[in-house]
Design a protein around this nucleic acid. Sequence first.
DNA 1: TTGTATGCGTTATCAG
DNA 2: CTGATAACGCATACAA
Lengths: 397, 397
Amino acid sequence: MGRKRLPESADGRPTVHTVAARAGVSIASASRVLNGVGGSPETIRKVRAAAAEVGYVPNAIARSLQSQRTGLVALAVEDIGNPVYVAMMRAIEAVVADSGRQLLVHATGGRIDNETALLRRLANRYVDGMIISPIRVTDDHLAALVDSPVPVVVVGQLGADAPVDNVRTDSRQGVALAVEHLVATGRRRIGFVNGPLDTVPGAVRDAGFRAALARHGIDLDEDLVEVGDFQYAAGRAATERLLARARPDALLCANDLIAVGALHALLAAGRRVPEDVALVGMDDTELARMMFPQLSSVSLGSAERGRRAAELLLQRIADPALPPRREQVPPSLVVRASSGAPLPSPRPAGDPFSGPSTGAASAVTTDPAPPAGPPADPASGPVGTPPSHPSSEGASS
Amino acid sequence: MGRKRLPESADGRPTVHTVAARAGVSIASASRVLNGVGGSPETIRKVRAAAAEVGYVPNAIARSLQSQRTGLVALAVEDIGNPVYVAMMRAIEAVVADSGRQLLVHATGGRIDNETALLRRLANRYVDGMIISPIRVTDDHLAALVDSPVPVVVVGQLGADAPVDNVRTDSRQGVALAVEHLVATGRRRIGFVNGPLDTVPGAVRDAGFRAALARHGIDLDEDLVEVGDFQYAAGRAATERLLARARPDALLCANDLIAVGALHALLAAGRRVPEDVALVGMDDTELARMMFPQLSSVSLGSAERGRRAAELLLQRIADPALPPRREQVPPSLVVRASSGAPLPSPRPAGDPFSGPSTGAASAVTTDPAPPAGPPADPASGPVGTPPSHPSSEGASS
DNA sequence: TTGTATGCGTTATCAG
DNA sequence: CTGATAACGCATACAA
């Protein structure tokens, strides 16, 4: 039965008009049925049939223009290749997808101009909200953050009490946990391979490291401190520089990528890990468990932080009038082969040995979990088996 | 000077009307100036001033509704955590951003229903095009692919000559390169840890492995073949199963994640790499260089494939009438410590030793590149230094 | 319940 | 060059 020409969109695809015409009703009725509100049984039948016949799919853009919401949420991180952000991203994605939205990922490269530009561009209304994990923060940056045209949640440390939703960890205490562990296992010449000091995490971890050593009565040898980028290659290079002038018996690295670089530098220099040098990373990414020996690492709960950030964002999107909130995820230390045999059990807090504690709860874990998937055969290696932790983080807080 | 009430959008933000009113011109003039087309010097000045004063930012949604394009491009991959996809993503992002567009990343988990749902949802016009790297392909899937409402480019092998833009590699030849290398270095009991056989890459690599062995006159011992997921944990578990029943002197893994799992299983079982067992991965991700010993790996040019896919997509968006195109990126083998001392030099093609060759060009490379970043000190380790390759790929083709 | 008409914010068309 | 006006595709007061 050859119909007349049905109205359709410019590119030939059916619109509400097409469906309405075909069903012999008004576009209002068609729209209502399509949205499941109202409509007589007969109308519903006709419209549904017409929609199916022409293969109608609502135009999301037109719908967004009307509803003032796109169903998109953005995430801006420094380096999409850092496994810590992958973990965070996964956690966020789960929450976001659960709310029927989609995630738009931006890589900022840590460049602050990129981030502010991104924040300003938010004004174009293309996303309903944004989660951002900046590693450098300026006043300008902060200003753009507070008067963002759309809801923004920050993952990471934010100076003062900026009126912005924000979920952080205490990486200073994270560093303290690692130092405590290393000291408790007899290490004294503890080195530190950090990221750039002009980043928030770099600065905080540097301060935390110095404070932790001081609490244990250890004089810091500046030769034992080196700085690079939060990356594998930089970590390796920095460690090589450090090894050229000092002989640490332990190395703390500001994230796992650096730690992997350090491991290579150490092995290349003929140092055994952990016999000669104990190695501890930060973020507790899956990379830590993939190395051999597996790396001890300070978990900064990145997955958890991502999850919470996503929840805060969704809440704020639902109710923009909410007061600014701030959540904190505590760090914990996961001990693996790279820093000595697993401790027999988590030490109780306030261990007399640890001197003036930061007040840290018993946030130390050994990691004996078996690999995910089919149960492994009992052939256990010399240093333990790979666990199946979630979580991680690269440079934030 | 207290203005009257200026027209503004529902949420209180300025629109063209706001600017126009403030500048004392029509919205048409305002729009023209804002878009840099036409306008007298005086009008231009007034409009620009007004726009700046009220902080006008064009609403991207309204603009999209009008222009029929969103400036968004989607990428759908199985596992966003697989470094091979990270590499691909980076390459794509570069091209896409270069065209002023943004990238929307989807993780499909390899579930085919997810992908088809995604394809159908494309009809809602929220993205201008999509790059998809499916690891499983059904007829239904393929159908959704060919009559997609928006341009789609497929990264990976596509059955027959589906009329869809598609950039692939020859992972069958990739496998052949690896086998040739292992045979040439004296290995005979070559095992294979593969991904699921119901995936395209899994099936192709399995066939390729069998064919390669046959070409070298080696009878395949089925005990030397094991299958798991394209993941670290599954790779380790699969290797453990394999080792429990067979004694390979070499192991080829279907991707680098599996290879890392295999490395752990091997070391845990007390086998030395490469002395007892040579190990070769696929995808040549950065993970391969991060391991110790560094892993030999078959590069499938994932970054290059991503780059090309992005270019194909942009071309098709610009001109939908283009005929379907198909590009191919050749694989190459990067030899590192895990499969024996680096070969002295690339072997010429048609090496009499290699028997009936696949016709592969000299796609073998040793990888002596120094680490990126600051020059490393000369302290070179026992097995070589980490290179700085781009590229990678996890399960496609 | 149904249809008409209007608005969402921009851009494009077409007179003036 | 400028301004009124009509799309873009959808949703929704409002009146019937």
